[in-house]
Amino acid sequence: MSTVDSSSSRLSVLKTYKLYVGGKFPRSESGRVYEVSDSKNKWLANAPLSSRKDARDAVVAARKAFGGWSGATAYNRGQVLYRVAEMLEGRRDQFVREVADAEGLSKSKAAAVVDAAVDRWVWYAGWTDKIAQVVGGANPVAGPFFNLSTPEPTGVVTVVAPQESSFLGLVSVLAPVIATGNTAVVIASEQAPLPALSLGEVLATSDVPGGVVNILSGRTAELAAPLAAHQDVNAIDLTGVTDDALAKELEIAAADNLKRVLRPQPVDFAADPGTHRLTAFLETKTVWHPTGSLGASGSAY
């Protein structure tokens, strides 16, 4: 973003980028910011430099939102995710500009990325009420019992968003987490957090209940450590951790309460995502109930 619009003498209005926590847009409680530049080192904005306390607040918000969001009907979650796509479509130009700046892409390439991100929301919007049928079902146990396995969301998931693919990558790791009813604490790309912070504004106007998605910007290592160790976080996606030593350290910390860990791995965000990222943060609950005969008359041995 330019400070001065050169075609006219009007001074443009700059955006103060803020965190998105509990449905609100707070500054970092630390009062700190850091400079975000484009690929040519041109200053774009100041982003909040989140602290451990911001991370903690985000977990509290995510936990609070979990009951309602996981309890919402799958159809409802699908509509909400589709609404995100609609809102994003309407702000396409803004995101094309932000992604182009953030990732050093041409307008047309950035547009393709934003379109793919919109389509990804649509893809996952459709999954919300299908995944249970694909991965759950009745089990034919050898006895007079009704036995049904259903997937349920794991809980609060920390998502370390991809560092390079600051927007399509972000959407690709975030949407599957919340599609199934989890709530998320997202650590945005450290170098390119602006598209993520702007996505918060889209989510806030898309019927996504406050706290379902919480977006933090700042130092990945500094934020991931307390979140990996946080006892009220149920899972962590390490996709955006590029340092192997840090990934290992976080996985070790995550073992303290046996978080489900999705290890970092190279991902082609343009490819068909499959169901892998949906199932990574699902638990299987199996419920048994006796069936038995209709009455006592037929039952004897």
Partner: peptide, 28 residues
């Protein structure tokens, strides 16, 4: 209930076709 196996009006039933495992610190 945040539990991997829920037995309703029965308990401790097992079957090879029935997935078994926990939530939270009961494992994954």
């Amino acid at each position: 209930l945040r539990a991997g196996i829920v037995w309703a009006n029965t308990f401790n039933k097992f079957d090879p076709t029935s997935p078994f495992g926990g939530y939270k610190e009961s494992g994954f």
